[in-house]
Design a protein around this nucleic acid. Sequence first.
DNA 1: CTTGTAAATGCGAATAATTCGCATTTAGGA
DNA 2: TCCTAAATGCGAATTATTCGCATTTACAAG
Lengths: 128, 128
Amino acid sequence: MLKKTKTRELIKNLLKNSSSPLSAQDIFNLLKDQNITLSSIYRTLDTFYKNNIVSKESSHDNTIVYSISGDNHKHYLECKICHKTIDLGFCPYHKVNEQIFKKHKFLVNEHNVIIYGICDNCNTTTTK
Amino acid sequence: MLKKTKTRELIKNLLKNSSSPLSAQDIFNLLKDQNITLSSIYRTLDTFYKNNIVSKESSHDNTIVYSISGDNHKHYLECKICHKTIDLGFCPYHKVNEQIFKKHKFLVNEHNVIIYGICDNCNTTTTK
DNA sequence: CTTGTAAATGCGAATAATTCGCATTTAGGA
DNA sequence: TCCTAAATGCGAATTATTCGCATTTACAAG
């Protein structure tokens, strides 16, 4: 079972309310008046990850960012060229995950919050 | 335009033939008799990424791993507990990507090769 | 086939990200 | 209230990634 601590509550709330995935360093900066160490943040995120409370992925600059999992998680389209993001507003993977569960009895944890690609604007600009 | 070099061809072939995503260090180890630097490998992977030749994601131990993109790319289910992988054998995201393109004119680059979750075996074992 | 030049690479150092060890504190069950 | 395993702070160690600069190379132009 998971102990309820100040550090964990703070980090979970940050992630719940954030409109984008956060790195350990991001969280550290946001909590810098709270006397919480970077190593604790890393450990907390790791614990959350193992308990399926958060998902993680590589951001475009190669740091790892975390998002809250669960029912009302979000998804973003991020352009690899201009890095603008579009809030998808829904999870496009529900059906896929159900199919995977039916076929393989494999329970997918929601993740892959950032969906990378090329936005309309960059596409028409670069191919012209 | 992208120059054709020995380093690039070697790395591309490795990724094409690999049955799992590879880290920069993995590639370095596999090519250690070829006199290629780690920094070149990083630069090459970065170039490939920007040109949509490879996709990248965070592996379970927080290093970044790369996979070849394109028509015959693969997908794997990886259990967060035992780390066993299952080859999905097809891309479950084609339809989703098409829908996203229709709605947002956003061209998703294939990625998210590793799909994390809990496998049947670990699930029945841990919940018992 | 030569030559010029921008791009790619090797090398090694610098930086940034992540993990670890250990002493201290704390949550929560007994 | 007490006990103990788990969580945290602190700082050092390790690992991953990036950078600067000199040298080499792909390839387009002549």
